[in-house]
Amino acid sequence: MKYIFTAILLFLLSYNSKAQGWEDVSGGIDDIVYDMIKFDNELYVGGRFYFGVKSWDGSTWTNYPNLPGIGSILTLSVHNDTLYAGGGSPYQSSQSSVFRLINGGWEQIGGNFNKNPFSSTQQLISYDSLLISGGRFNTIGGVTIKNIASWDGNVWDSMGDGLDSTVLHLEVHEDTLYATGEFMASGSNTNVQNIAKWDGSNWISFDSNIVFSTTGPMKSFQGDLLIGNVWNNISGIEMKGIARWDGTNYSSMGDTIIKKIHEFWEFSNELYIAADIFASPPLILKRTVMKWNGTDWSQIGANFNQWIVCLEDYDNMLYCGGQFSAPTSHIGRYNPFLSTNEYKLEDKEIVKVVDLTGREIVEKPNTLLIYIYSDGTTKKVFRVE
C-alpha cells in the first residue's frame, strides 16, 4: 500500500506550532478547574469537582477533604508557607469562607463572608505581611467589609472604604497592590472604575486621565504591569485586549484576534496567555494558549472546546486548567516532545499506525500518530482534519 498525502501535507506544513501536544494528566479531572498553585513540591488544583482540592506529585493524585460550605474552589494562594483556599456556593448560600490547610485538613480563618444572594472569594494573594481576599461580600463576621479584606493572622480587616462591587483579580507590581473587577467606586471616590491601586490607606485611581471600560487579569512582567481585557484607545493607540504600562506610558501587547484574556503566566522567562480568540467565521471562538515571542502572539498546541481558566507550571512543564473536556479533561500538560517539525510522509509502504503508547489504531483527525514503515523506520505526524 502506498500512502498519498498531498492535500493533508500542505495543511500540515501551514499548521506549525498548532501541531504540538497537550497531553492528559493521569485521566484528568471530572469537572471545572479554577485555579492551580505549586506548594510543598506538588501541584495543587482547585475547582468544582468532588473533594474540591487535589494535589499532583507527578505520578498520582491525592484528594483533600471538602471545604465546608464551599461548592467551588475559585482560588488558591500560599502565604507564610501555608496553603489557603477560598471560593463560593452561588446557588446554595449567601455565606462563604477562607480556609488554610493544616495537617492535611482544612481550618477556617476568621468569620463567614456574607452577601445576598451569594458571596464568594474570587482571588487570594499574599501582599506584604498580609493575605488579601478579593471577591463578593459586604460583611465578614458581621463587620462591614466591602469586597476586599486583609488577614493579619488574627482577624479580617477592611481596606479603606473597600470597593463597591465584585473584585475579580489582584496583582502585586513594584510592591504595590492593584485590583480589577466590576466596581465603580471606593466610598465617595468614583475615579476607580474597574481598576484601582492601594496606597496603603485607601483605594485610589490607577490613572485619573483614563476611564477603563473593562479590565481583566493582570501580570507584573519585565518591570511593567500588563492589564488584560482593555480595549480602550489610549494616546491614539488601540490596546487590543492587553495594555502594557511602564509606570508612565502605555503600549499595546494585544491583537485584533483576542476576544478575552482569562490568565497570564510567566514560565521559563516566557509569557503565556489563556485566551478566547476569534476564528473564521468571526462569530466562532477558539479557546487556546498563546505565547509571546517579543513581537506578537503565537498559538501553542491544539484548540480546547471550552474556556481555559488558569495556567501554572510544575516540574518544568506548563499546565492549564478550565472548563474544557477536550483535548484533555479539565487539565492538560504541554509536552513539547509531542511536537514534530517533520510533516512529510515518506513514499513507502506503511506497516501499521500506532499512538504514543504503541497501541495500533485506525487513523483519525487531531491525533499524534506514529507511522511504522516496512523498512523499520518511523515518523511522528499530527493528523489533522
Rank of each mutant, 00 (worst) to 15 (best):
residue 170 L to N: 15
residue 72 S to C: 12
residue 305 N to Q: 06
residue 131 L to D: 12
residue 338 L to V: 10
residue 292 W to I: 15
residue 64 Y to S: 01
residue 260 K to C: 04
residue 143 V to D: 07
residue 7 A to S: 05
residue 231 W to F: 15
residue 356 L to D: 01
residue 377 T to P: 11
residue 258 I to M: 13
residue 76 L to Y: 01
residue 267 F to Q: 04
residue 379 K to N: 14
residue 142 G to R: 12
residue 274 A to H: 05
residue 1 M to C: 05
residue 227 I to M: 08
residue 64 Y to V: 00
residue 202 N to V: 11
residue 334 Y to F: 15
residue 268 S to C: 01
residue 337 F to D: 15
residue 151 W to I: 10
residue 82 T to N: 11
residue 119 S to V: 06
residue 172 V to G: 12
residue 176 T to I: 14
residue 50 Y to D: 14
residue 351 V to D: 15
residue 20 Q to E: 11
residue 137 F to N: 13
residue 374 S to P: 04
residue 129 S to W: 03
residue 348 K to Q: 13
residue 75 T to W: 03
residue 4 I to L: 04
residue 131 L to S: 06
residue 253 M to V: 05
residue 43 L to D: 05
residue 243 A to F: 02
residue 225 L to Q: 10
residue 156 W to V: 03
residue 279 A to W: 03
residue 344 K to E: 15
residue 96 S to K: 05
residue 92 Q to K: 00
residue 86 G to R: 09
residue 366 N to Q: 13
residue 78 V to Q: 04
residue 7 A to I: 01
residue 187 G to F: 09
residue 271 L to R: 04
residue 64 Y to C: 00
residue 311 L to A: 07
residue 361 I to S: 00
residue 226 L to V: 12
residue 321 G to P: 08
residue 243 A to L: 02
residue 159 M to V: 10
residue 353 V to R: 11
residue 224 D to A: 12
residue 323 Q to N: 13
residue 331 I to P: 01
residue 215 T to Y: 03
residue 352 K to G: 03
residue 324 F to D: 08
residue 143 V to W: 02
residue 204 I to H: 02
residue 275 A to L: 04
residue 171 E to A: 15
residue 40 D to L: 05
residue 42 E to T: 00
residue 274 A to P: 08
residue 307 W to L: 06
residue 8 I to D: 05
residue 123 Q to Y: 02
